[in-house]
Write a protein that binds this DNA or RNA. Structure first.
Length: 776
DNA sequence: TCGTCTGGCACTTTTGAATGGC
DNA sequence: AGCCATTCAAAAGTGCCAGACG
């Protein structure tokens, strides 16, 4: 069963949440490596504290958990890369994943809404190096990084929405910038990672809806690099990625072209030098084709043009000419057509097959008249995945080398595999426990094109916080497929083990007390070794309950001064919790999460200076708890599968329903994965209609989403120490705003979307000026 | 010295605005 | 005026490469 964590302080309206959901790994970092299936905090907490809201007796809330399936649409492409050893470029600015995660969901309740999350967890504790054509572990992994989760821009959307189209996480970016403020997923270079996709039911965006399903596709494991190490990967990427088309054999940036340019550049410089020293080489006899429009020549415009080829001063003139001078004049139009035609037949998934158009292109030794560069369209070597030998990968600590690669020919093979049931609970911390929202960062997507412009407040209809009650319903095991058997329930000893290592008292009442009983020492890969050799997921996932009271100051200490993040300030019970938005206009830079009443401890989000936020949604008191890991520590056995699924459900509800104000429907926003949605009036969308049956739920965090801790890393983090002292190296951004135009925002943030877009709207554009656009 | 990272480059695709025709 | 198609430019994505860095 999966434990559940809620963030009541984040008021989410019926519209979509922000795209990127950050979580600082601090929380999990100072969690001991307990059996992941154990929710020690949940069990340790008094029932009244961890009681999740009851699930309404709404038949629609009962989803066929067992039927939820996820398929990797581009599994064949992934397997091609996996067979070689997938490498993912990470850059400071963030790099998209390629191949991207293209998924297909099924088995969802069409009427319920779900949130899709993507996170990437380390697979082991090793750092790798590409030596001798193989990836070898050369040392221990680097320090933990702030964990971030990318929320699919469409989230939350109905099951019908998710199932009606392919789901892509191509907007997610990877970065090695530990101080990244753009909301990208931060990873270490030369480390191995495993993406995970989580499907979380949210009957409305204010509350977990009752289930979560986590999916892992082993073939999507990858190694992060700042520069490709394996040439085969490079070749695959070039042949598969449209953006790298220019580097294909027929492209202007192909190896031949680049070599030619390089030679040309050298020649130009050399000739220039020669010309300077040799009057006989008069540039007046230059051959136009050589330099007239060459970009390189343009760059060297100040330099004399190439001398006559007959000039004996060209060092490598002969070979140079042989290489560059086209046999036939280049017809740009023809070349373009050939290029286009050749691309048509190239499939991203199984492409790299020669195409008819290429045949034409192959015969064209081209020279671009426009840029003066010889354009070659040499033979396009068909890339066959089978031609790439499996890159040997470290055997000692990872399963990557022996990663089972299911038959790529059949997408149906990618059946989700259920993890063992994980202790589920929706722990709610007592009012004395401060939710560790500092562990969570939220990217603030840039405003998507939304047609909804309802001026009314989306938060105004929040019910009285005190009216909301929660109770815990034991989570049910919801195996998805027949492969469930491979994931037997975690041993019951996990709980005891946790209890042996951590006490509730220490968690709740000794904030500064260092965590005791760290079960795994640094450099220990035992957890991984114990897992299936073929597939180590799920790794140990020590979740951090982080129930220690966190004062606003503590949280503020977390905030990186330079990070344009959403500063989150949480206070203990009864105290208002504020969120600062440094990256937004001053009048918007504070979100106040106030506990309406001590008893209810409902956090209310306030957006100062915004009338529409005067009435913020209330939060349950347990929203900020960080229950222990919900992931299995190490599944005893693993049957190779293209997809592992962790399914769990928990049910909680608020005792009082809050009418949901109309808001933007996910479908009203641009769908980055598929075609754009037609504009839809908010009121026309049942889910966002005030009369909709959804209750004002809000959940932004689920403990099962906590990253797996590297068991080998020393966990000297205090179990309840102020978070600020835990991650000095990686300042956390408790609540970060990131721009992503294709995503929606939670109600409290939604106003930020409703701003006039100045200048060129771009997915990665900067924050927008909100001053000139009416909000709600 | 070596391995790794970074920024710039040239290329491509994508995207949205601008334009013109109906 | 509205719709549609086309064109154009800007932005972003991509791998490569030289140089910087530790």
């Amino acid at each position: 069963m999966l434990s559940v964590e809620m963030y009541p302080s984040l008021t989410l309206g019926p519209q979509r949440m922000g795209d990127c959901f950050y979580r600082d790994r601090q929380a999990s970092a100072h969690m001991p490596l307990f059996p992941p299936a154990c929710d020690v905090v949940a069990k340790a907490l008094p029932p009244r504290l961890m009681a999740p809201p009851p699930v309404p007796n709404d038949p629609t809330t009962k989803i066929p958990k067992n039927d939820v399936k996820m398929e990797l649409e581009n599994a064949s492409l992934w397997k091609q890369f996996s067979s070689v050893g997938t490498e993912m470029i990470i850059t400071k600015k963030g790099r998209r994943m390629f191949p991207g995660l293209r998924l297909k969901l099924s088995g969802l309740n069409p009427s319920l809404r779900y949130i899709l999350l993507l996170d990437i967890i380390p697979l082991d504790n090793s750092r790798y190096r590409f030596q001798g054509g193989d990836w070898q572990a050369v040392g221990g992994a680097e320090a933990k990084l702030p964990d971030r989760v990318f929320i699919h821009p469409d989230s939350p959307a109905t099951g019908a929405h998710w199932q009606s189209r392919n789901i892509s996480f191509h907007y997610a970016k990877l970065t090695n910038n530990t101080l990244d403020s753009q909301g990208h997923i931060i990873l270490h270079s030369l480390h191995r990672y495993q993406p995970r996709v989580h499907v979380i039911e949210a009957r409305d965006v204010l509350r977990w809806g009752g289930g979560q399903h986590s999916f892992v596709f082993p073939e999507t494991q990858f190694l992060t690099v700042t520069a490709y190490q394996n040439n085969k990967i490079t070749e695959l990427k070039i042949n598969s990625n449209p953006f790298a088309k220019g580097f294909r054999d027929e492209g202007m940036n192909s190896k031949k072209q680049r070599d030619a340019r390089q030679k040309r550049k050298i020649s130009v410089v050399t000739d220039t030098l020669d010309i300077v020293n040799c009057d006989p080489c008069d540039s007046t006899e230059l051959q136009p084709i050589t330099t007239s429009t060459d970009l390189q020549a343009l760059a060297l415009a100040s330099l004399p043009q190439l001398p006559d080829p007959s000039c004996g001063f060209r060092p490598d003139g002969a070979s140079y000419q042989d290489t560059l001078v086209p046999e036939h004049p280049l017809d740009l139009g023809e070349a373009f057509m050939a290029s286009q035609i050749s691309d048509i037949g190239i499939s991203m998934a199984n492409g790299m097959q020669d195409t008819p158009g290429r045949e034409v292109a192959n015969h064209m030794i081209e020279r671009s008249d426009t840029i003066g560069e010889p354009a070659y369209t040499s033979t396009f070597s068909a890339t066959n995945s089978s031609s790439f030998p499996l890159a040997p990968l470290p055997q000692s600590s990872s399963s990557f080398p022996s990663l089972p690669v299911p038959d790529s020919s059949d997408a149906s093979n990618h059946q989700p595999v259920d993890y063992p049931s994980i202790l589920s609970s929706s722990p709610t911390l007592s009012s004395s426990s401060t939710p560790s929202l500092q562990q969570t960062s939220f990217t603030f997507p840039t405003p998507p094109p939304s047609n909804s412009s309802s001026p009314q407040s989306l938060l105004s209809s929040s019910s009285s916080p005190s009216a909301n009650t929660y109770h815990t319903i034991p989570e049910t095991i919801s195996p998805h497929t027949s492969t469930d058997a491979s994931f037997p329930a975690p041993p019951s000893t996990c709980h005891s083990g946790l209890q042996d290592q951590i006490s509730v008292h220490s968690l709740l009442t000794q904030p500064s007390h260092p965590l005791q009983g760290e079960p795994i020492s640094s450099g220990n890969n035992s957890s991984i070794d114990q897992s299936s050799a073929a597939f180590i997921y799920p790794n140990t996932l020590p979740a951090n309950p982080d129930p220690a009271p966190v004062t606003a100051q503590h949280l503020l200490n977390y905030i990186h001064p330079q990070a344009p993040s959403l500063a989150c300030s949480l206070s203990t019970h009864g105290a208002p919790t504020s969120f600062a938005f440094p990256s937004v206009p001053p009048h918007m830079q504070n979100l106040s999460f106030s506990n309406v009443s001590p008893s209810s401890a409902h956090h209310v989000l306030h957006l100062p200076n915004l009338s529409h936020q005067a009435q913020a949604a209330s939060f349950p008191p347990s929203s900020f708890t960080h229950p222990s890991s919900s992931l299995p520590h190490a599944h005893p056995s693993f049957q190779p599968s293209s997809c592992l699924a962790v399914s769990s459900s928990f049910q909680q509800s608020m005792s009082s329903a809050t009418s949901m104000p109309p808001t933007a429907h996910p479908q009203n926003l641009r769908n980055p994965c598929t075609s754009s949605y037609p504009p839809v009036e908010m009121g026309a969308i049942p889910q966002f209609n005030p009369a909709a049956p959804y209750l004002p739920e809000m959940v932004l965090h689920h403990p099962s989403l906590l990253p797996q801790l590297d068991p080998s890393l020393p966990s000297s983090l205090p179990s309840s120490a102020p978070p600020s002292a835990l991650y000095s190296a990686f300042p956390s951004y408790p609540l970060r705003l990131c721009q992503d135009p294709h995503s929606s925002l939670s109600i409290p943030f939604r106003h930020l979307y409703r701003q006039h877009q100045h200048g060129h709207a771009h997915p990665q554009g900067p924050y927008l000026d909100m001053s000139s656009r009416a909000v709600f």
